[in-house]
Design a protein around this nucleic acid. Structure first.
Lengths: 210, 210, 210, 210
DNA sequence: AATGAATGAGATTTCATTCAT
DNA sequence: AATGAATGAAATCTCATTCAT
């Protein structure tokens, strides 16, 4: 039995199964929470035996990692064109906020699952399993946007780490809570309101008026 | 069966033990995460037998509830005088932000534990165990502050729910992530920066300058 | 601390407490079944601390034994005059059957508790805790009655052990099931019907008619 | 969650294992009593891990229910041809009594286990787990036999419920006590003696002789 | 004589994982 | 590539019992 990692490429079946399992895992976590998203529950949703998961993934951690990677990839592919389409820092921030809302609507369960994992899963030595979450994967980009905006004079002076953190918390936290509660909060409208707030808080002429 | 309170008042020993157990539970959760904070681990930290916990608490849920109550109480007692000392809406917002930072520094583990519970713990029927978290206990107050600020003309027009959510996410989420990562981020300085940002985003003359 | 057994006589308080605990134990077992009649439950019903039971009884087994003894004593004191008042074997059998019914009505919980113990409780080595149950305490008497009835020609020839067993099962089992189910079966009427049946099954002229 | 039967049919292995576990459970209960027949003890006897039982049975209740079902089925299959072979009421009663004795000899532990469960096991809400026991499954039949015997004039007038109860107690109770005590009482001979007694107590010409 | 506090053994159940087929 | 079967560790909770006061 050749170890999994040794084989060079994955077959079509394997790729498909892995994707299916990841999706079922995401659904299970989003709907029942991390604690109840056992291997058995995930397998049940996928209509396969538990051991099929073990066959395709080294262990539960690898499944979680794959789920995270999938989400990070999805977020990047989703967000990059949106950011690229904007030229001003102000526009990019607005694109980031509204883009996050749309991403969360489209990939609801996947993103909720990431949160569940981030808050719950621990590696074998107890360290958190997730270092970088989807949104945080773009932290450099976000900080870069703010930095360039300040350089060009478009944005006022502020602590970039703080403002970037605030932007991310506005999405990761507030929006996600809304998602979780299955609330009827209109995420899109919410994002627009947020955009205005950040426009006021960051643009230079505002600071000038101070 | 019979509610604890119905039988009699708590003895000194009991009060002390319960507090100790709650503290050890908070430490365990903050340090190892909810999943690893088993009764055995909590007992180990307290240097007592597992069954001592069962003796003092009906079950794990009651322990969690007591932990939450402790945190909510601590937060309220901590925050109320700070808010009362300010008269302007702007001042109250600043007090809220800096107060949260100080609270989190002082009650670090307790607060992290509340987050763990809020995100993880499920009741017997699978419903989330925690409805209101410490900060959310003050949501009405927060929204009240914003509303009054708008009425007096001190604050510009904005969606109160969005801004209150943003304020809370700025504390609950961003600060907490910092706490969790055991980062050397200076929470106090962070709060000051946040205060400026929110000052700009909310005060009326800013909106006028738009 | 002098071992319990060493002290010669029991104080008034002790006798009273023991009786109270036995009664509460009987109630608990009759109402909730053996498995739920824990020391804690018994103490709760008595309004005392668990350790009070330990103070008055060596261990749970001793409490059970005392309960059994109490029931056996009660049954004997109840039944003896009834049997003594009859002279014929036939009369004694009728007295036994109706007497059992009355005893069970009067000492309902105590007797049900004995059954619970008989069926459930095991000694430290796994042997049944109860060798002789109240009714069985009178087996010799019962067999003696039958034997004398046969000797005097009043009763037909039959296997004495079988008939005695049948008499006891008619009471211990059938009546008790009725008690347990809290049925509205009229135990007294039941006993009368049983008496007729046994009259027919045992008296000599019946056998003659065969 | 999903009922076992809904998923698919049982494999050969599963059927075999379940039967083995049921048998070991019966042995454990018959030999050590309900309280000591823990999952661990049952697994030990079967030479398997505790969790194998959990794998094949939802929980302990399901195992108990399966054991009961097995016994009820065995009793029915055993008794039905015996009763069908007799035409007279008197013959059917004799067949019932001797049949019970043979059944208990053949299925000793299984039947003792049923008794243990009936007397001890409580469902999650404290209600008794077993409503109908093997013998009681045939109560209607028994009462029907007596009723027809009275109608045809073969049997004397008596209270049918009382007599049926007596017949059942004669088997369930008396015989079982004998079984339990591991006595050397010859059950078969016992049954013959019982049959005579009931013949005398029930047949019409006896009543006529009165 | 009584109590509150503490203990350790043991019960049921869940779960990720492994193995033979 | 997939499955059913089995495992052992660990989690929560209950209980009879003991001990210091």
């Amino acid at each position: 039995m050749q170890p999994r990692a040794a084989r060079s490429a994955r077959t079509f079946t394997e790729v498909t199964r892995r994707a299916q399992i990841v999706q079922c895992a995401a659904d299970a976590m989003a709907e029942t929470g991390y604690a109840r998203a056992s291997m058995a529950e995930i397998a049940r949703r996928a209509g396969i035996a538990k051991s099929v998961i073990s066959y395709h993934f080294e262990d539960k951690n690898e499944l979680m990692q794959e789920l995270i990677s999938t989400a990070v990839r999805a977020f990047s592919e989703f967000m990059e064109p949106l950011l690229a389409a904007e030229t001003s820092a102000d526009g990019k921030i607005r694109a980031y906020l509204t883009g996050c809302a749309e991403y969360m609507i489209r990939y609801r369960n996947l993103h909720l699952a990431v949160l569940e994992i981030a808050f719950n899963a621990l590696g074998p030595e107890g360290q958190p399993l997730v270092a970088s979450m989807p949104f945080e994967a773009h932290t450099p980009t976000l900080e870069q946007i703010l930095r360039q905006g300040q350089k060009s004079g478009e944005l006022r002076r502020f602590d970039i780490a703080v403002m970037a953190g605030l932007l991310r918390s506005a999405t990761t936290h507030t929006m996600v809570l809304a998602l979780r509660a299955d609330s009827d909060l209109d995420l899109a409208a919410y994002a627009v309101e947020l955009a205005t707030t950040f426009h006021l808080a960051t643009t230079a002429h505002v600071a000038a008026g101070e």
